[in-house]
Amino acid sequence: MDHLACFSPDDLRSKPALLEGQRWRLLAQGDSWFSVAAAQAHGSLLQELMFKQPAVAVNCAGSGDALSHMVDLESAPEFVRLLTAADAPVWDGILLSVGGNDVIAAAQTPAHLEDGSAVPLEKRLLRRQTEWGPPSAGVARYFSEPGWATFAEYLKTNLRHLLTLREQGPSAGKPIFLHCYAVPLPRPAAASDGRGPWLYPTLKAYAVPAADWLAVSRLMVMHLAQLLKSLAADKENFPGLHVFDSTAVPLALAAPGSTGISGDWHNEIHLNHSGSFKIGRAWSDAIDAVFNKPVKPPPAPGRRGAASAA
Rank of each mutant, 00 (worst) to 15 (best):
Val56Trp: 00
Asp102Asn: 13
Gly138Trp: 01
Leu219Gly: 03
Gly30Arg: 02
Gln47Leu: 14
Leu45Cys: 08
Leu26Gln: 03
His69Asp: 15
Ala205Trp: 00
Leu26Met: 08
Arg160Ile: 09
His69Cys: 13
Asp65Lys: 11
Asp212Thr: 04
Gly30Trp: 02
Ala191Tyr: 01
Leu26Ser: 06
Gly173His: 04
Leu214Cys: 08
Glu78His: 09
Ala248Cys: 11
Leu73Tyr: 06
Asp10Gln: 15
Asp212Lys: 02
Leu67Ile: 08
Gln29Gly: 13
Val290Asn: 06
Ala310Asp: 13
Ser262Ala: 14
Glu131Trp: 00
Val208Ile: 15
Arg166Leu: 15
Ala5Ile: 12
Leu12Pro: 04
Ser63Arg: 04
Pro209Trp: 05
Val221His: 01
Arg23Ile: 05
Leu27Val: 09
Asn158Met: 05
Ala105Gly: 15
Ala309Ser: 14
Arg281Thr: 11
Gly260Ser: 15
Ala17Arg: 10
Arg124His: 06
Gln168Ser: 14
Asp65Trp: 05
Ser284Asn: 03
His273Ala: 14
Pro294Leu: 09
Leu165His: 06
Asn267Leu: 04
Leu95Ser: 08
Asn267Cys: 15
Arg304Ala: 10
Leu121Asn: 06
His266Glu: 14
Glu153Cys: 13
Ala300Val: 15
Lys123Tyr: 07
Ile261Ala: 15
Lys278Asn: 07
Pro134Glu: 12
Leu49Val: 07
Arg304Thr: 10
Cys60Leu: 06
His69Leu: 15
Leu46Lys: 03
Arg195Met: 11
Asp92Leu: 09
Ala182Arg: 04
Pro186Tyr: 01
Val249Ala: 08
Asn237Phe: 10
Ala38Arg: 12
Ala61Thr: 15
Ala255Gln: 13
Leu12Ser: 08
Pro146Gly: 10
Pro134Ala: 15
Leu199Val: 03
Arg141Ala: 12
Pro9Val: 07
Leu67Arg: 02
Ala190Asp: 03
Leu45Val: 13
Met222Glu: 15
Ser8Lys: 04
Gly100His: 01
Gly305Leu: 12
Ser230Arg: 09
Lys174Asn: 09
Leu73Thr: 06
Pro209Leu: 08
Ser230Ala: 14
Cys6Lys: 00
Ala118Lys: 11
Ala232Trp: 01
Ile261Gly: 11
Tyr206Leu: 06
Trp148Lys: 00
Gln226Met: 11
Ala205Pro: 02
Ser308Ala: 12
